[in-house]
Computed example of a mutant assay.
Amino acid sequence: MNDKLKNYLDAIFSPYENNPQVRELKEELYNDLQEKLNDLKQEGYEEAEAYHMTIETIGEINDLVETIQIKTNELQQKIGMDFSKSNLKHSDLRSSNLQDGKFNYCDLQGSDFSLSNLTNSSFKCSNLDKSKFDGANLTRSIFNKSNLKGASFANCILDHTSFLMSELSGVCFDHLVFNGTVFDNSGLRGASFRHAIFRNVSFKTDVKKVNFDGATMDKMTYAILKGYKADLKNVTVV
């Protein structure tokens, strides 16, 4: 790694370090410049001359960075507004404040909401196949009638979240804590809740092929699951 080149780019991009898209741009630009620098040195240029020639190829990047920043600000200004019926496939929404956002009837396949605040957000009838919510706050969020196959929820907050009539087959919810969460009429075949904690959770759906090994739950949740013939031989009731 060329420390001088890295320090140069760090200085240019320092005002934008909190923007994930700008960080990705910097990483891509560094790799391209490093390759250019190596090529020049192989052509016989001295280190200092090759460095200056490499820097000169950057050109004016402020406009590009500013464009990314403007798009991010426009998205942030829509907090609480309606994104419904939008094509947002593979969107990078990491670490965003999207409280009260509406994403109903959206195509969000492969989108990344990791570490975002999605409190009170709505995802009704949306495609969230292979989406990521790792570390996100999904308190009181609504995912009714949505496709969530392949979605990731590691370290999520799922207090009073509704997954009513949604497709969650094969999704991993291991080690998570559920308070007042609703899974009624959802597809949960092959889903895993190993070592999860349940308080006042509703599972009025087919749970015979769901893994609850090592889970801890209150008596009400246990009664609902037992009524729907879940395998509860390795759970703890408190």
Rank of each mutant, 00 (worst) to 15 (best):
N2Y: 13
L5A: 10
A11E: 15
I12N: 12
S14D: 15
N18Y: 13
N19S: 15
P20C: 14
Q21T: 15
Q21G: 01
E24W: 06
L25Q: 09
L25E: 13
L29N: 07
D32K: 15
L33H: 11
L33G: 09
L33A: 12
Q34S: 14
K41P: 02
Q42V: 06
G44C: 09
Y45T: 01
E49N: 08
A50W: 02
A50E: 05
A50M: 08
H52M: 12
M53K: 15
T54G: 07
T54S: 09
T57K: 11
Q69C: 06
Q69A: 12
I70S: 02
L75F: 09
I79H: 04
D82N: 15
F83I: 04
F83V: 07
D92I: 11
R94D: 00
S96N: 07
S96H: 05
N97S: 07
G101E: 03
G101K: 06
F103E: 01
N104Y: 00
L108V: 02
S111L: 03
S114K: 04
S116Q: 00
N117V: 00
F123D: 00
K124Y: 00
S126M: 03
N127M: 03
N127F: 02
K130C: 04
K132F: 06
N137T: 04
S141Y: 00
I142T: 07
K145I: 02
G150A: 08
A151E: 02
S152L: 13
S152A: 11
I157H: 04
I157M: 05
L158M: 13
L158K: 01
D159S: 12
H160W: 06
T161K: 04
L164P: 00
D174Y: 01
V177Q: 10
T181G: 03
G187Y: 06
L188M: 14
R189V: 06
S192R: 13
H195A: 09
A196C: 13
A196L: 07
F198T: 08
F198C: 08
R199I: 10
S202F: 12
F203D: 06
K204G: 01
K204A: 07
K204F: 14
G214V: 13
T216P: 01
M217S: 09
D218Q: 10
K229S: 12
K229C: 07
A230V: 10
D231T: 07
D231R: 13
L232E: 02
V235Q: 05
V238K: 13
